[in-house]
Simulated scan of single mutants.
Amino acid sequence: MASTAGQPQQINVADLDISQLAEVKRQLEEELAHLTNSFGQLKQAQAKFKSCIESVQQVNAANQNKTVLVPLTSSLYVPGKLRDVENVIIDIGTGYYVQKNRAQAVKHYESKIEYIKDNLDTLQGTIQKKQDNMGYLVNVIQSKLQTQASGSGNKE
């Protein structure tokens, strides 16, 4: 006999009572909120990397020795002069920075954007499935409520 331990058991939602359906609906709403929040955060990260590409492209020979604002944090900038317009220092994560030439830096950020795009596509599919499940669940709840209402109406 095959063991099903560790495997999720499938339950037909139509077999659940209204209070159980309400709990499943609440869980689905929480999952959807979390997934939607994650989607938004990924979109923000993607926009940040696109902004980084634009910043790298601003570093060019025409701007050499010009005063620019250098970001120290996301909200603190100090004036500085561009001396080396061929190389930039990029944040590769967890507080580590490396020097790359402009083409390498753009390629790095483009790969990050593509990675996020793939994750966004996957996440969008998951969100769509959860929304479809939510729609089906709401229909089941409404059907049960109507059945309950018509059943109690016949008893009077």
Score class of each variant (00 low, 15 high):
Met1Cys: 07
Ala2Leu: 13
Ser3His: 08
Ser3Val: 04
Ala5Met: 15
Gly6Asn: 03
Gly6Trp: 01
Gln7Glu: 14
Gln7Phe: 14
Gln7Gly: 10
Pro8Phe: 04
Gln9Tyr: 13
Gln10Leu: 14
Gln10Glu: 11
Ile11Val: 15
Asn12Asp: 12
Ala14His: 08
Asp15Tyr: 13
Leu16Ala: 04
Asp17Glu: 03
Ser19Ala: 04
Ser19Leu: 10
Val24Asp: 11
Arg26Thr: 04
Gln27Val: 08
Glu29Pro: 04
Glu29Asn: 08
Glu29Ile: 11
Glu29Cys: 06
Glu31Val: 09
Leu32Asp: 04
Ala33Phe: 06
Ala33Trp: 01
Ala33Leu: 06
His34Gly: 08
His34Trp: 13
His34Ala: 05
His34Ser: 14
Ser38Cys: 08
Phe39Arg: 02
Phe39Lys: 07
Gly40Glu: 08
Gly40Arg: 03
Gln41Glu: 15
Lys43Leu: 04
Gln44His: 15
Ala45Leu: 15
Ala45Ile: 11
Gln46Arg: 07
Ala47Tyr: 09
Ala47Trp: 05
Ala47Glu: 11
Lys48Pro: 12
Lys48Ile: 12
Ser51Pro: 01
Ser51Gln: 10
Ser51Met: 09
Cys52Phe: 07
Glu54Cys: 12
Glu54Trp: 04
Glu54Lys: 11
Ser55Trp: 14
Ser55Met: 13
Val56Asn: 00
Val56Thr: 03
Gln58Val: 11
Val59Leu: 02
Thr67Val: 08
Val68Cys: 05
Val68Pro: 02
Leu69Gly: 07
Leu69Asp: 13
Pro71Met: 09
Leu72Phe: 03
Thr73Leu: 07
Ser74Thr: 12
Ser74Arg: 14
Ser75Pro: 03
Leu76Thr: 15
Pro79Thr: 00
Pro79Tyr: 07
Gly80Thr: 01
Gly80Asp: 03
Lys81Glu: 09
Lys81Ser: 05
Leu82Pro: 00
Asp84Glu: 04
Glu86Ala: 10
Asn87Tyr: 04
Asn87Arg: 02
Val88Ala: 02
Val88Phe: 00
Ile89Met: 12
Ile90Tyr: 12
Asp91Val: 02
Ile92Glu: 07
Ile92Asp: 07
Gly93Arg: 05
Gly93Met: 09
Tyr97Lys: 14
Val98Asn: 05
Gln99Arg: 06
Gln99Asn: 02
Asn101Cys: 11
Asn101Gly: 06
Arg102Cys: 00
Gln104Ser: 09
Val106Gly: 04
Val106Leu: 03
Val106Lys: 03
Lys107Asn: 10
His108Phe: 15
Tyr109Cys: 00
Glu110Asn: 12
Glu110Val: 02
Lys112Val: 09
Lys112Met: 13
Ile113Val: 06
Ile116Trp: 06
Asn119Gln: 06
Asn119Cys: 02
Leu120Glu: 03
Leu120Pro: 00
Asp121Trp: 08
Thr126Val: 12
Gln128Thr: 12
Lys129Trp: 06
Lys129Ile: 05
Gln131Leu: 09
Gln131Phe: 00
Asp132Thr: 10
Asp132Val: 01
Asp132Ser: 06
Asn133Ser: 05
Met134Ile: 02
Gly135Asn: 13
Val138Met: 05
Val138Ser: 08
Val138Trp: 04
Val140Ser: 00
Gln142Lys: 09
Gln142Leu: 03
Ser143His: 05
Ser143Asn: 12
Gln146Lys: 15
Thr147Tyr: 08
Gln148Phe: 01
Gln148His: 08
Ala149Cys: 09
Ala149Arg: 13
Gly151Tyr: 14
Ser152Phe: 15
Ser152Arg: 15
Asn154Phe: 14
Lys155Arg: 15
